[in-house]
Simulated scan of single mutants.
Amino acid sequence: MTFIATTIPDVKLKTPLVHKDQRGFFYEAFRAHDFKQQCGSYTFKQLNRSSSVKGVLRGLHFQHLAAQGKLLSVLVGTIVDVVVDLRPTSATFGQVLTLTLDATQHQQLWIPPGFAHGFFVLSDTAFIEYQCTEYFDPNDQYVIRWDDPSLAINWSLDKTDPVVSPKDEKGMSWQCFLDKFVDKTIV
């Protein structure tokens, strides 16, 4: 398996060595030693699964007091995955990373604590699994608007509007995030 640093070096794209034959395929999805060497020492505390249909956009979600690192896998379908660096002391603070991930590549995306995360479903359905380094706390969840013009995210939307939850539709602007959180520690 290989780990590739993205344009935000702390966010890593992991590609496994896939063994295929007439029966199907096999690959190692996680090895603690390799992960620790490439991404640091983290303990995964929660495993989440999400199913969405074409056109659904989820995000941009983040936690403040107990920021979650996420190891994301697309098990079925294709998504546009988006992360935004929320770490004020980072050289990549405010940068957006957009990647297309699909189940056929078997790649995983490591998103360390301190990032907002969202995705848009391109396929008829998508099934996503992600391991988290912290437990979800409903009192510590926040949303940045997916369509904030300051972030200028290319979600690869077609001409129709995405399906967005009421909570995501009411997310804060990037400027509101800066005003509310920039002087506070996220990680």
Rank of each mutant, 00 (worst) to 15 (best):
Met1Asp: 09
Met1Gly: 14
Thr2Gly: 05
Thr2Gln: 14
Phe3Thr: 03
Ile4Ser: 00
Thr6Phe: 03
Thr7Phe: 01
Pro9Phe: 04
Val11Cys: 00
Val11Trp: 07
Thr15His: 01
Pro16Thr: 04
Val18Lys: 04
Gln22Ile: 11
Arg23Leu: 04
Phe25Asp: 04
Ala29Cys: 07
Ala29Asn: 10
Phe30Thr: 06
Arg31Ile: 07
His33Ser: 14
Asp34Val: 07
Gln37His: 07
Cys39Ser: 10
Leu47Thr: 14
Asn48Lys: 09
Ser51Arg: 15
Val56Arg: 09
Gly59His: 05
Gly59Asp: 04
Leu60Glu: 01
His64Tyr: 08
Ala66Val: 11
Ala67Met: 08
Gln68Arg: 14
Gly69Glu: 06
Gly69Ile: 08
Leu71Tyr: 15
Val74Ser: 06
Val74Asp: 05
Ile79Lys: 03
Val80His: 05
Val82Thr: 05
Val83Pro: 00
Val84Lys: 02
Leu86Gly: 03
Leu86Cys: 06
Pro88Glu: 01
Thr89Glu: 12
Ser90Ile: 02
Ala91Ile: 10
Ala91Tyr: 03
Ala91Gly: 04
Thr92Val: 03
Phe93Ile: 00
Gly94Cys: 08
Gly94Val: 11
Thr98Gly: 05
Leu99Tyr: 02
Thr100Asn: 11
Thr100Gln: 15
His106Phe: 08
Leu109His: 01
Leu109Met: 13
Ile111Thr: 06
Phe115Ser: 00
Phe115Leu: 03
Ala116Cys: 10
His117Phe: 12
Gly118Arg: 02
Phe119Leu: 09
Phe119His: 09
Phe120Trp: 11
Val121Asp: 09
Thr125Cys: 10
Thr125Ile: 14
Thr125Trp: 11
Ala126Gly: 06
Ile128Cys: 02
Tyr130Ser: 00
Tyr130Asn: 00
Thr133Trp: 04
Thr133Glu: 02
Tyr135Ala: 09
Tyr135Ile: 09
Phe136Asp: 01
Phe136Thr: 11
Asn139Gly: 13
Tyr142Val: 01
Tyr142Leu: 10
Val143Arg: 02
Ile144Cys: 11
Ile144Glu: 05
Pro149Met: 02
Ser150Glu: 15
Ser150Met: 12
Ile153Asn: 13
Ile153Gln: 13
Asn154Asp: 15
Leu157Ser: 05
Thr160His: 13
Asp161Leu: 13
Pro162Thr: 05
Asp168Asn: 05
Lys170Asn: 15
Gly171Lys: 06
Met172Ser: 04
Ser173Tyr: 08
Ser173Asp: 07
Ser173Lys: 09
Gln175Arg: 10
Cys176Leu: 11
Phe177Leu: 07
Phe177His: 04
Leu178Ala: 00
Asp179Asn: 15
Lys180Thr: 15
Lys180Cys: 09
Phe181Met: 06
Phe181Gly: 02
Lys184Met: 12
Val187Glu: 12
